[in-house]
Amino acid sequence: MNRFDYVRPSSVSEAVAAGAEPGSAFLAAGTNLLDLMKGGIARPTRLVDVGRIPGLDAIETLPDGGVRIGALVRNADLAYHQEFARRFPMVAEALLSGASAQLRNAATTGGNLLQRTRCPYFYDTASACNKREPGAGCDALAGENRQHAVLGWSEACIATNPSDFAVPLAALDAVVEIEGRGGRREVPLTDFHRLPGDTPQIETVLAPGELIVAVRLSADAAAFAGHARYLKVRERTSYAFAVVSAAAALRIADGRIEAARLALGGVALKPWRAREAEAALAGASPGFESFQEAAALALAEARPSGDNAYKIELARRVIARALTLAAAGTPERLPALPGSPFASGGSLHD
């Protein structure tokens, strides 16, 4: 790990001033940043520790029925917050499908959204990576790329966004509250992460010094609570990143889908909202046929970036399965294996 200076501002305004200095990086829990620094992938010369700024760690119900999640709320505290999990069950399920209990106890709301890709070529400083070193090239293009993106990728970068949490947030039209030297602004989560294009080193819309202070979900998002699931296919049942995941939520009345929300994880450098699929589901009868049609629409633009054509078919099936699970109704208690395609019930390894 490189040497760095350490400062601990006591307010958001102090933090954004300190964070705008060249070479600075914000530190919250550090579960991703310290890992990156140990590997020499991130080399900030100054850490601005925002972990103790007062007022950023609350889960508040808003007057309009929405919820405001402070940027320092820990992933585990949000997932286990009973009222939150009841109203936004697929967000809780996604959080609990990610990382390990130890990491969820530390990792924060804001930090989760800012975690970096786990592309092995990004992590290996001996490999060429345009994200790590603009203009260096991309060794993933001709490398081991079966886990890489099938949507929204460019020749410059085929990495994926690793967050589970961001997927249901994208589906439910979450809003990111950002504070910078110019004041506060808000960005829909679906616009927060950038696709790679020619500048994969620019990952979000944050300007230097800008800090996430909260994430909001509206009362409208809570209206999907009865039929909402997160489904995550990974290479082992727990403690692994998604190969493909889907957040699927339905509002069903009189046997018809009134409205649908759908987003995919593991397929692109941002959580992938599938609006055309949602539009096709609205007014349809919930069932295999409409779910398959939605799945086909969601992947219509997909193309392999390497040895990963399988992901396109897998994503279609994950969508159809997630919609089927959502239509069956949100379980009263979170499954023993959150996000897993394996039904719980104790039979898997007993």
């Binding site: 350490y6 130890q102 106890n105």
Partner: peptide
């Protein structure tokens, strides 16, 4: 690097990976 859990301790009653905590 936060992957194995051998360094787990309780901080203020919560289990975390002590290797990823300054």
């Amino acid at each position: 690097r936060g992957q194995c859990g051998a360094c787990t301790i309780l901080v203020d009653g919560r289990r975390i990976n002590s290797c990823l905590a300054l």
